[in-house]
Amino acid sequence: MSAFQIPKFRLPAFVATIGSRLPQWPHSLHMAAALNLVLKLKLLPEDTLTALEDKLFRVHVRDTGGIAHYTYRDGLFRPVFQPAREPDLAFAANLSAYLQLLTRQEDPDTLFFNRELEITGDTELGLIVKNMLDAIEFSQLRPRLPGLPLAGH
């Protein structure tokens, strides 16, 4: 394990108040770009990507007020700036939980059962996405993105 551990924290409420009033489209744009990078690096299991086709996703960072909407269509993740319907799958958590998840300090099941990660929508789709995330070998990013701090490496 890395010497650095991301602590559990919650940003002050005023951050979410301000953040929720800011334009949300940059979050969607950046989320889609990050997912497309992972896609380009061939870190996502291609056999399960078809299950994501035309599904709408939402990622809400509660304590920042940030919300990203995106979809997967025609082989790419695409930002959705004004969703016309409820997402097929939605995630909500504080920033610290997402950071712990991304660095593999915590797994999605632990965060979910500790009520730090809320997942709503299509249960089967949620399981597919969870398994896709679990299949990603983040260690493969290190040679391609030097200096990337990842727990456990």
Results as ranks from 00 to 15, higher is better:
A97D: 15
A135H: 08
A90Q: 02
F4Q: 13
Q82C: 14
F14L: 09
A93P: 02
R58N: 02
P12H: 01
A92R: 11
F14V: 10
I136N: 12
H69Q: 11
E124A: 13
K42A: 02
H27F: 08
T71H: 00
I136R: 07
G19C: 01
T110Y: 06
T48V: 10
G66E: 13
L111I: 00
L148Y: 09
V15I: 04
I136G: 06
V129C: 14
K130G: 11
G121I: 06
Q140T: 10
Y72G: 04
P26V: 02
P87Y: 10
K42V: 05
R10A: 12
P87K: 02
G152E: 10
P79L: 07
K8L: 12
A3I: 12
G19S: 01
S96L: 05
R58G: 06
L148Q: 03
G66N: 15
L101M: 05
I67W: 07
I6C: 11
T17Y: 08
G65I: 12
S2P: 05
Q82D: 12
K40Q: 15
N114M: 04
L49A: 09
A92N: 06
L111P: 04
P23Q: 03
L148F: 09
A51I: 06
L148S: 10
F81R: 08
V80K: 01
F57K: 13
P23I: 06
I119R: 02
D74P: 13
D63P: 03
N114L: 13
P87A: 08
P45N: 14
L127I: 08
Q24D: 05
T103S: 13
V38E: 14
D47H: 10
Q140H: 03
D54R: 07
S96C: 03
L35S: 11
F81W: 06
S139G: 13
G152M: 11
L127P: 01
P79Y: 00
F113P: 02
